Simulated scan of single mutants.
Amino acid sequence: MELSEAMRTTGTCRHYSDEPVPDKVLYDAFDVARFGPQGGNRQPVRWIVVRDEAKKKALADLYLPYWEAYYAAISDGTKDVGAVPKTIRSANEFAHNLASVPVLIVVVAELAGLHPTDAELDRLSVVGGASIYPTMQNLCLALREQGVASAVTTLLCHEEPAVNELLGIPEGYLTAAHIAVGYPRDHFPTKLTRSPVEDIVSIDEFDAPMFR
């Protein structure tokens, strides 16, 4: 598979078959993912593969209340996420069936390995994620190459202390995301909807489109 095809078709999968994902498939994906860029080559990312049914259910039980609150806000018009109703329904089904996904991967990062140069700015600090999320996306792409789908969620990060206790994550680590992994029930997308290049790229100044 060409890299560009993998990048264009690695969407969020919300419906999975019950076919197990072999350890070899996961190993090969992790082997590629670890080469993602990170500050100072500190390699802060660790992965916890959760197959145990009881632990998957515990994670799903922690996840669902946050999804329900989010879903309720969308349903009553309090929150506008810009998604079409079909996508919202699909996400709701995903949330209620999270425990049945073949594999849940918890993305963990060592705090000492992050260098958030924006921590003192008067806004949300995001720079530390630059040493985490490229590696995570590498994993999703490496899985896609092998015909395995994924869905990244961060809602469970609300419950970091409970997740730490459940999975024995030591102090000094944060949970950056949780990834559902499995073979797709249906098929991979052939065309993801994204903003055109003309709308998102400027030159020299924010309001100067580079491409017209």
Rank of each mutant, 00 (worst) to 15 (best):
V107G: 14
E110Y: 02
L98M: 13
I88A: 08
L124M: 09
F94A: 03
L114C: 12
S90V: 00
L121S: 05
L114K: 10
G82H: 12
L124S: 02
S90H: 00
K79D: 07
S100V: 01
L114R: 10
L121M: 11
A99F: 00
A83L: 15
D118N: 04
E93A: 14
K79Q: 06
L104K: 01
A119Q: 14
L114Q: 13
R123H: 10
V108T: 14
S125M: 04
R89G: 12
L114N: 12
L111A: 14
A91H: 07
V108D: 05
W67E: 14
D122I: 00
R123Q: 08
V107P: 10
E68Q: 14
I105G: 06
T117S: 11
S125P: 02
P102F: 06
A72T: 09
E110M: 07
E110V: 04
V106Y: 14
N97W: 04
T78E: 12
V103R: 05
E93T: 12
S90I: 00
E110A: 15
N97D: 13
V84F: 05
N92K: 06
V107T: 15
A91C: 04
A119L: 14
I105N: 09
L121Q: 09
P102Q: 05
D76S: 15
N92I: 01
I88F: 05
F94L: 06
D80S: 10
S125K: 03
I74S: 05
V101C: 05
A109K: 08
S75E: 15
N92Q: 11
D76I: 08
R123F: 00
L98C: 03
V126F: 10
R123I: 00
